[in-house]
Each structure stands twice: as C-alpha cells, then as structure tokens.
Nucleic acid binder design. Structure first.
Length: 613
RNA sequence: GCGCCCGUAGCUCAGAGGACAGAGCGUUGGCCUCCGGAGCCAAAGGCCGCAGGUUCGAAUCCUGCCGGGCGCGCCA
C-alpha cells in the first residue's frame, strides 16, 4: 500500500531502475520522477527515455514503450503508459486520496544548529515598511527551518552604540523634550531625530551638533544610557510582536565590545598575512585587511578594521559578531528580558548575564539583511576565510532581499518619506474590519478576526515574491484581500474548518472512510496535498519562504475548485456532508488534511489561520 | 569604470534543464437546488529584453549586448 508521496516517488524510481536492467542498461542512470502536467495522462512520469536514447542510440518513444511494457509498478499504481518519450504512471483515485489523507508528520531532526539574525533595527525610531520585509522574511525562514528539523536560534541585534541612536538621544536632550505619553514612544522619539536632521542642514551649527553627538556616543559606549535605549527598544518590540515575530535573544553591540569579543576577533585576524598595519601612505597607523582574494570588483581592496585613532569600524564589530555566532569566539552572558506573547522567553545579552546560557556557536548562520549590505556581508565571509575557516564562510549565508521602495522612491526616515509598520497594521485592521462586517455580520469576535486578516494580508504580501526582487509598497497591493493573497489562503482554511465544524455538529466527523469510493474529482486536491513536504523542503533548502507561499496559493486554489466542482449537468459534484456514507468519510479525511496543511503552512509563514473569519 | 542583482501577458508576479509558458489584478461573459460568493467556471491577452552558443531538449546553463536597481569611505 502506498503510504505517502515520498515513498511513492521513490518506489516508482526504483521500479523504473529495475526495468532498465531488463533493457540491458548497465550504467546507473539518473531517473527523475516528476508530476505530470495537467491535461496529460497519468499522475507522475519520467523522461528517462530521453537520456537513454543517447546511450542506446534508439528513439525515445520506442524506449518509453518498452519500458512501460516491462516495468513492474508498485502496489496502488493503476496504470503505466508511454506518452511520447515519457513513461507515465496513474495512481488509483483510492490510493491517491488515502495517501493524501495520511496525517502530517514533521520531518525528523537533522541535528544541525542554525542561527538566524533578523530585524536588527536601529533603536532610535519607529519601524517602517522596509523593516517589515526583513521581519516577515526572517521570521518565516526561522519557522520553516525549525519545522524542517534544524535547531534554530533567532537573534535580534541591537546596535546601541551607533550614530543613529546617539543622534536621537542627543536630540531629546538638546530640545529638552518630555514624553507626552500619547504618541507611541518609538514614534515620539523618531520625531526628535528628524528635527535634529533638519537642524543639521545648517552649516553654521554643524560643529556644535557634531560635538554633542560625539559626547552622547561616548556615554553610549560606556553603557550609561542603556535604559534610554531599552525604552525605545521595548516600544519597537510591541510592533514586532504584533506582527507575530518572536526571538530567542537580543544581542547588544555594547556588550560585544565590553566582553572583549571585538579585541579577540582582531587578535585572530592580526597575525594572518592578509592583515597589516601600514607605516606610511593612505592607511598609515590603521589596521587593514586585504580582501582582494575574496571580493571582486573593488578599486581598493583594503578594508579598515581599526582606524588610525584606535577606534574600531563597523565591519570589525560585524566580524566579531559573526565569529561569535559560529563559535570561533566564546563569551557573552545572557539573562531573561521579557515574556513574549506566546509565552516564549526572550533573553538579552547583559554584562551581568549568565555565561552558561548557550547562544552562539552554530554550524550555520543566516543573516537577513537587505541587498545594499552585500559588500559588508562578503567582507564578513572573507574574514572567516582569513581566520583560516573557509569552511565556515561557505555556510555563513546572507539572505539578501531587495529594498522596499515607496511610490518608486527610496524610503528615507530622515526626510520623512516613509510609512510606519504601525500605520500599515492599523490601516490593514480597519479595512479587514469593514470586510468582516460585510461578509460575516454575525462574527463572534470581529476585532480579533480583522487583526488576523490584516496581519495575514501584510505578511503574506511580503513573502510571496522572491526576496531578490525589488518591491514597491502600495496599499492596494499589500492590503489586498482577494486573488493571490494571504486572506485568500486564510479563507480557504476557514472554509475547510467550517465544514469540519458542521460535520462534528452532525455527528459524522468520526465516520470511517471508504477510500474505494473516491472519485476523479478528488484527484487534483489529493495530488497537491502530497506536494507539501517537497514545498517545505524546497523553502528550507533555498532559505526562502516564497516557495511555500506559492504552494499554499496552489493548494487553496485546488481546494476551492474542488469545493465548487459541478457535474456536466450543473449539479454539485463534491458534497461532503451530504455524500453517501463511506465516501463522506473519505471526503472528510481529505478536508481535514486540507485544513491541517493550510494551517501548518500558514503558521510557517507567520500568517494567522483563523477558524472563522 | 569595475562588481552584484533583476528584465516572463496592459499591471504585479510564479516557473530546482524536460511535456503545448502558469497565477492574480484589470477587461468581457457566466455560476447562490450543496457544506462560507474573501469563492468558482470561461474568453481575450506572450518574438520569456536582444543576439549567439551548449544540449535529444533552454524562460532555466554559458558568452556578448541593451534596459533598470544597488554597491565600490579611516560613515554606520
């Protein structure tokens, strides 16, 4: 009996391989088994005859016919036929539905630790739609890898010693601002930042402002202003949590420096032939790394790690962090920071933290950072190679996504050309609320449904396309509730859940399935259901959620088509609750699986799956 | 200038070297005798940027060109 599609495909492959021997093929040949296109006979097929044609010097169609005649198909396969040069297999409807209805089993643990860093927003202003893409991608990839069996650490890097934070805190001081308690705190603080930048345009003030910023920077480095930064961070976290993103730990840049990780990283690099301290010329007195063997296309391959005044550059800190992530360096203590909405504890690095809390030291890393940072990310990988670990450089991935533009222009927080995540979510909620009121006026909890649909629309829009593609943020597109959208998939899920609810009310939910009664109408949904493990595996392997998003659209479409199917005379072809006993059980099993796969898939994307919407 | 990424239907996008290139939006026309119409069915719409090459087979791989985005600081 066929258990699931992985077995099925593997069994088909084996059967074909055995028949190859009968044809006199001795050399091992790769036998691809793929689903047949719609409107073609069969469910799965192989083009192996084309490969063979070359070796055996015979026409592919002829070989396909011979293969089809000799192959001994596994149990449950109802037919084998040659279609042109392809050999196609038809699985019986009963077997197909039975296999598709088999309960989901998550993949086994792979025993590999992966560290995903995402979000990493400067703690000095509210989140904008560019950050939205980062969070949606990073959170989805983390969930997918965890499901795929990896041990995943999700980190959010807090750049608390950066210029942007210094400018903001300086602005608050300079203008003597007091929090009004009304505006969300990160938005309020962001206004001070924008105001300072307006003032900085005046060349007469530049020196005075610069000195002020530098003074704050020093206080930040000493850790003196940590609680100020933390206050902004907590406001930002509310937005991240509202989106459904959660983290395992926050890593503060100041901790990285204070714990000496930066110095250790530099020490690792310093005695390699690639790193030098020139006595004269352009880089006199600085510590520089020659990246020419690792990064192409640079006029000047020398990268400054330590300035001639003794201060470290940003790339140096990045390198130290990366070394720690991959276990080249140890250190950093952690302690609990907050309880997240799901109950999961969020840790933070801290000078008084517990050093035995085991973050870092992963075998593979994924840095979710936009594509404009590709060069610094290559430098980070180069540093691993310089430190004698080219093997680690291979698995230090940069999940590079293209930036989000706004009306075709680059987002700029400073110039106010931006849309905040909070604003987007509020508007999404408002629009979804209106639709719920219209479509489902009896809804028991319309506010909660509107929130779930709004978030779902926004997050799905951010992950449905390939990360490398630039996207222009448009309200109608990001907040679309029909067509290829999050709510479309959510609706398909709610519809399946609704049928199961009614089945339970009618007392037929536990009815035994008689798969032998399965019809041709079930075939497309069943086949699509069987593709789920492949979709997740592909998303994990390629480290991109869009593969899974596209799959869920396919499944929702197949399920909706099934739901609406009619006989040629126009009468409903696929009633579930009114189907004859046995067939009803089989259809309920299929509907349950549709609901479970949609729910699981949506969860992996971080899109809520409401039962009623 | 050099390097990286992207060019697929009017628009927004899928498409791990395999079967006549697929969705959504928009346009046109249909579907409430069923369990949710945020849905379904159908039609129209394509030199897959251009030109070569590799291959039994190319939207997919290679080379060149064209168009667009980004990067190339002792900034972060």
């Amino acid at each position: 009996m066929v258990r699931d599609v992985r077995n099925l495909k593997a069994e088909l492959r084996r059967a074909v391989e055995q028949s190859l021997v009968l044809l006199g093929v001795e050399e091992p040949v790769d036998v691809p088994v793929q689903p047949t296109p719609p409107d073609r006979p069969g469910d799965y097929g192989t083009p192996v005859a084309f490969t063979l044609a070359r070796v055996l010097r015979r026409p592919p169609a002829e070989l396909a016919r011979e293969l089809a005649a000799r192959v001994c198909p596994p149990a449950g396969v109802a037919g084998v036929e040659a279609v042109g040069g392809y050999v196609n297999f038809t699985v019986g409807a009963a077997e197909l539905v039975r296999a598709a209805a088999e309960p989901l089993r998550p993949p086994a643990p792979v025993g590999r630790r992966v560290l995903v860093e995402h979000t990493s927003v400067n703690p000095n202003k509210e989140l904008h739609v560019g950050h939205l893409r980062n969070i949606a991608l990073g959170d989805a990839v983390s969930r997918i890898l965890r499901y795929a069996g990896y041990e995943v650490q999700v980190l959010n890097y807090i750049d608390d010693t950066g210029r942007q934070v210094a400018e903001t805190l300086f602005a608050l001081e300079r203008y003597g601002l007091r929090y009004d308690g009304v505006t969300k705190y990160d938005h309020w603080v962001g206004q001070a930042y924008v105001r300072l930048h307006r003032e900085m345009e005046d060349p007469r003030l530049r020196e005075e402002l610069e000195a002020g910023v530098r003074a704050v920077l020093h206080r930040l480095e000493s850790g003196e202003l940590r609680s100020e930064v933390e206050r902004v961070l907590r406001a930002q976290l509310d937005t991240m949590w509202r989106l459904g993103a959660e983290y395992d730990a926050l890593v503060w840049e100041s901790d990285l420096v204070r714990e000496g990780l930066l110095q250790q990283a530099l020490a690792l690099l310093e005695h390699t032939p690639y790193v030098q301290r020139p006595r004269e010329g352009k880089y006199a007195g600085a510590l520089v790394m020659d990246t020419s063997s690792f990064v192409q296309g640079l006029e000047d391959p020398y990268l400054v790690l330590v300035r001639s005044d003794g201060t470290a550059t940003y790339p140096a800190k990045d390198i130290a962090f990366q070394f720690w992530k991959m276990g080249l360096l140890q250190g950093l203590g952690f302690r609990p920071f907050a309880q997240q909405p799901s109950g999961r504890l969020l840790y933070t690095s801290h000078p008084e933290g517990d050093r035995s809390v085991g973050f870092g030291g992963c075998e593979e890393t994924i840095n979710v950072i936009d594509a404009t940072q590709s060069y610094p990310q290559r430098v980070v990988r180069a540093a691993l190679a310089v430190a004698g670990r080219p093997d680690l450089a291979e698995v230090a991935h940069h999940l590079a996504y293209e930036t989000v533009t706004l009306e075709g222009r680059r987002i700029s927080g400073r110039r106010g050309h931006t849309v905040s995540v909070d604003e987007v979510l509020d508007e999404a909620h408002r629009r979804a609320r209106a639709v719920v009121a219209e479509k489902n006026p009896e809804h028991p909890d319309p506010e909660s449904a509107a929130e779930q649909v709004g978030i779902g629309a926004v997050r799905f829009a951010m992950v449905r396309t390939e990360p490398r593609r630039q996207i222009d943020f448009r309200w109608e597109q990001a907040l679309s509730f029909d067509g290829d959208s999050g709510p479309y998939v959510q609706y398909a899920h709610a519809r399946a859940a609704s049928i199961l609810r009614r089945a339970e009310e009618a007392g037929v939910l536990a009815e035994e399935a008689d798969f032998a009664q399965a019809t041709e109408y079930e075939r497309p949904v069943a086949r699509t259901l069987l593709d789920f493990p492949d979709a997740v595996a592909a998303a994990a392997a390629q480290r991109t959620p869009h593969v899974l998003a596209q799959y869920l659209l396919d499944l929702a479409a197949a399920w909706n088509a099934y739901y609406n199917a009619r006989h040629p005379d126009g009468s409903p072809a696929t009633p579930v609750l009114q189907a004859p006993p046995g067939l009803r059980g089989a259809r309920l099993a299929l509907v349950r699986q549709v609901r479970d796969v949609l729910r699981t898939g949506l969860e992996l994307l971080g899109v809520p799956a409401p039962e009623v919407m």
